[in-house]
């Protein structure tokens, strides 16, 4: 169980990115965070694993206080929290294999990993992760030889190496073609069904309806909605996105 309590983030330049956000995520949920660009979605996800330090409030995970964790404790916690990024964030000049193996860094000692010495079991695990996302044949390619969709799959494979209990996905499909969006989100859905909690920020409402078990909406750093996807009606939509907004669908592809 992940508890977010009174989370506030003020950047040094005075921007208030999050204001007193509180909610709870039960294990096994596929929680989607929606909101306009700049509404604080990315900040919220990064405050959970403290890539960004929150200004106030706390984050509790299975009772452990993440916001108070020492650097060593934080690394222990981060090992179990996978993260998927909008820009994939793979190292383009490294091989796919190295990128995937880097997900294992929290488990191995500094010395052997710096020398590039990996155990056989880690290599097998990496190959399995690549097989799961369907690009095992690309293991020896350089990451920049891959398409955007394939790079995001490398990102997911990297996350799998962590044996995560929680996945934070920051706009995982915003840089991809609509058709590819579903293939990526389906991997996340599948992982969710295997028991991994997923926190995902998304842009398109049709994707939210399709994948979310619960939705939280942010507007200028404030939580303005929490509930089931079907509860977002036209009025709610206007409230979250503003009067000018028109609903756009990510894809017209019908899925079964």
């Amino acid at each position: 169980m992940l508890q977010i309590e009174h989370l506030t983030k003020v950047y040094p330049n005075g921007t208030v990115a999050l204001k007193d956000v509180t909610f709870t995520v039960q294990d096994g949920e596929f929680l989607v965070i929606i909101g306009l660009s700049g509404s604080g979605k990315s900040t919220l996800l990064r405050c959970i694993n403290r890539l960004i330090e929150p200004t106030e409030g706390r984050v509790l995970w299975d009772g452990a206080n993440i916001t108070r964790a020492s650097p060593a404790e934080l690394r222990q916690l981060r090992r179990h929290v996978g993260m998927v990024f909008q820009q994939f964030n793979v190292v383009k000049r490294s091989s796919v294999m190295t990128n995937v193996l880097s997900g294992r860094l929290g488990y191995v000692n500094s010395f052997s990993s710096v020398l590039g010495l990996w155990s056989k079991s880690d290599r097998e695990r990496a190959l399995k992760a690549l097989e799961r996302v369907g690009i095992a044949d690309k293991a020896d390619n350089r990451a920049d030889a891959l398409s955007g969709g394939q790079q995001q799959r490398v990102g997911i494979a990297r996350t799998l190496m962590q044996e995560p209990k929680l996945i934070l996905a920051d706009e995982p499909v915003a840089s991809l073609d609509p058709v590819l969006s579903h293939s990526i989100l389906r991997y996340l859905e599948q992982l969710n069904k295997e028991g991994i909690t997923v926190l995902c920020s998304l842009h398109f409402l049709d994707l939210v309806h399709r994948y979310a078990t619960r939705v939280i909406a942010l507007k200028e750093g404030v939580k303005v909605f929490e509930g089931l996807p079907k509860e977002i009606d036209r009025a709610k939509f206007k409230e979250i996105y503003g009067e000018e907004a028109q609903e756009v669908r990510a894809t017209t592809v019908e899925e079964g």
């Binding site: 694993n49 890539l51 981060r78 929290v81 996978g82 993260m83 990024f85 880097s102 860094l105 710096v114």
Partner: peptide, 18 residues
């Protein structure tokens, strides 16, 4: 990539190398 590798729980030296 720095962000991604840090998020896996890697130590600073590992973040630099990877």
């Amino acid at each position: 990539p720095l962000e991604a590798v840090s998020a896996t729980g890697a130590r600073p030296i590992q973040v630099v190398v990877f």
